[in-house]
Each structure stands twice: as C-alpha cells, then as structure tokens.
Design a protein around this nucleic acid. Structure first.
Lengths: 214, 214
DNA sequence: GTCTATAGTTCGATAGAC
DNA sequence: GTCTATCGAACTATAGAC
C-alpha cells in the first residue's frame, strides 16, 4: 500500500477517504455479503476499478474500514480507561462507560460504523479474525481492569463478563441501528440515557457473576 | 402452500423436510446473503429447481426455516414460563432460564438454528420483520412476567431489560456458534454452565435496572 | 414431484487506454 | 490515478420434459 501523498478532492477528502467512507456506509447497511463493490463505487462517485486499484479486493476494503475505525475506538477506550479511578466506589461503572461509549459514537453520530461493530461481534470467521487482530488487545486491558476491582473473579469469569457486556451493547446497537430511536415507541433517548441503562445493566450483571465466585 | 400428503424418502424425511434442514444449515453457516440456493439443493440432494417449486423463493425458504423453529422455541418457552412460580425467591432466575434455554437447543444440539437466531436479533429489515411476526408475541409474555415480579419497573424499562438480556444471549451464541466450546481456551462448558452464567448475569443486570427505578 | 437446461442478472476482478 | 469495457463466475429464478 506504500506511501502516497494524498491529493484532496471534492469535499476536501481524498479519493481513498471518500471510498472508505462510502464503503463504511454500504457495509453498515447491507453487511459484507450484501454490499456491492459497484454500489460502493457509486456512493463514492468513482469507477469500480478504482476500488480495486486502491484496496485490492472487497475483503481488503472491508478490513481497512474496520481497521481505521477500530484505531479510533481503541484509542478513545484506552484513554477513558486510563482515567478511571479503580479505587472509586463506582469504578465498575466507570470501566463500563469507557467500554461502551466509544463505539456508540461521538454524541449521536456515526451510526454507520456502530452497525458494522455489532456485526463484528456476532460474525463468523472473517469477523472473528478482525476482532482478534484489532480489538482483542484492548479487550485484554478491560478484562485486567475488571479483575483488579473484583479480585475474587477468575480470569475466565472476567473474560466471560466482558463478552456478556458486549452482547448487551450489541442489543442496544441493533435496536434499529439508530441510537436515537432506541426504545422507539415513544420518543427518543439521548445517548447518555442509553449509556446509563447499559452501564447499570452490565454493572449489575458483572457484580452478580463476581459475587457468585466468592 | 396447500395441503400435501407428505411422502417420505431416504432417512425417513420428506423432501420438503430435507430441504428445510439443508437450508437451516446453509443459512446458519453463511447468513442469508452468503447462502446459495445451489448449495442448499446440493446439501438436500435435490435439484435447485425443486427448492423454488416447494418454497417459491430464497426469501420464503428463509422465512419457513425461521417460522418452523420459532414455533418450537416459543412453545417451549411458553411452557417453561407457565411453570415458573412468580412468588418464589428466584422467580427472576426462573423466568430467564425459560427465556434462554429453548434457543440454546435440547441439551447441546441444534447449534445451526442457534446461529440463525443470533442473526435475527442483530439483523436488518428482513430479520426485524421475522422477529416481529414470530417472536414478539412471546416476548410480550416475558416482559409481562418481568413487570409482575418487579412491579416498580416501567414497561419501557422491562422491555429494555428484555432486549439487553437477549443481547447477552447473543454474545454467548456468537462465541463461535458452538455452545460446547464457549470459553474455548481451556476445555468445555456444559450447556447448564452456560445457562447458569447467563442467568446470573442477566438477573443481576435486570435487578439493577429495577432498583434504579425505586 | 422432480429433473435438466438455461435465461437473465449481478457480482468481483482485470485489461488496457489515457 | 482514473477511466471504460469486459471477462468469467456465481447467483436467483423459470421453462419445459417426464
């Protein structure tokens, strides 16, 4: 993929960036198999051949989308986790906030990647490999933190707790893929409300798992 | 789809049944878009044309797979829920056991549909419609039960709790789609262990949500 | 009810001009 | 770096014989 001087175009975005964004939207809406290279090229307003020139294959384009966004999410997660006071009474809630907040996007935006993120968690081999490569290292840090505040909890249980917490996140994400209309029926929920419910639920669940091992 | 006398073949299964089973396997392994009618016909050892003769289209075949299995799951869930003692100390755990046990399959089997089930929860429009048609009615019964044992909980919160609990289930299902090898690294977990962890986590989470509303 | 054959489309990827 | 044109394979679905 070499080093290229990025020439900006149109909206001030490079062609590669426009393709990446278009791909993110398409993959989010249709999933990997449902997405089409032709559809992505149309959204990016470039020829289909250009996608292969820049990314090689559909698989590599997907990988690039996940890789780019995972870096942002992991960085934000790590920063939030570092700022957690592990001795505070609500340390568990702080940790879970650091886990859930970044993938939900900056205050209401980025529903597109949020959907891809959900697909990663429930995906098959392709997604499993991507998670392993781009999310597992940070996951270990969160599992460490859980063990530190719940010392009685085995690593196996902590890993299990982490996994279950992510499942709860997916449930929220999948509620139509639109964070704003979560419980849909009557009115909207702010991202802080969503986070609060998630953190409360996961905190209670993890505390229960930890208590059981005492 | 009219009434047809089912003529049995081969393994004692009718052709329609063999196709349905083959389709379930294929959809479970590849998802809707990844599955191929040709691949399904090969697995069922019939011609591809026969799939369309019996089911009309890929969409309708998928619907039939979900419909058939949802009936089994819903019946089992309803029976288990009916047998819950709502006045017992562990009523919440009993309710959640009734919710989680059926989709995990009879004592270790049926990983195939379990995977499809997970896909329904995180799916898009097609899956959303299927869930609405085949799972929502029973979901209402569970939300009712949650409200009965946690009377302070609003219906909105109860629905949210139900959704988060299902998310935790998905997390478990997606751990490689094989219930037996869940925490994979060291050895196997029985389905009872898996259920126990899930129920403990979700119980703690829902109790926390309910407490917050008091 | 089941088959073979194929229509008609879409897909990912490539060749080659500019 | 970007395009047009196209290849070859895969797909869903249908036609028509038996």
């Amino acid at each position: 993929m070499g080093v290229e001087a990025e020439v900006l175009t149109k909206d001030g975005l490079s062609t590669v960036e426009r393709i990446t964004i278009a791909a993110e939207l398409e993959f989010a809406e249709r999933g990997f198999d449902g997405a089409g290279m032709k559809a992505i090229s149309r959204r990016a307003d470039v020829s289909q051949a250009l996608l292969h020139y820049h990314f090689g294959s559909k698989d590599q384009l997907y990988t690039e989308v996940v890789k780019r966004r995972s870096k942002v999410i992991n960085d934000e997660r790590a920063a939030l986790l570092d700022s957690v006071d592990l001795n505070a009474a609500d340390a568990l809630a702080q940790i879970l906030d650091a886990l859930f907040r970044p993938p939900l996007g900056p205050a209401g935006g980025d529903q597109a990647y949020t959907r891809i993120f959900g697909g990663l968690i429930v995906g098959r081999e392709r997604e499993r490999l991507l998670v392993k490569a781009y999310y597992d290292p940070t996951a270990q840090r969160f599992i460490d933190a859980l063990q530190r505040i719940k010392p009685k909890m085995s690593r196996k249980t902590a890993a299990h707790a982490y996994s279950l917490a992510l499942g709860a996140l997916v449930a929220v994400i999948s509620r139509d893929g639109r964070i704003e209309r979560l419980m849909g029926e009557e009115g909207q929920r702010s991202i802080e409300d969503v986070l609060d419910g998630l953190v409360t639920f996961a905190s209670g669940g993890i505390a229960a798992l930890a208590d059981r091992e005492n």
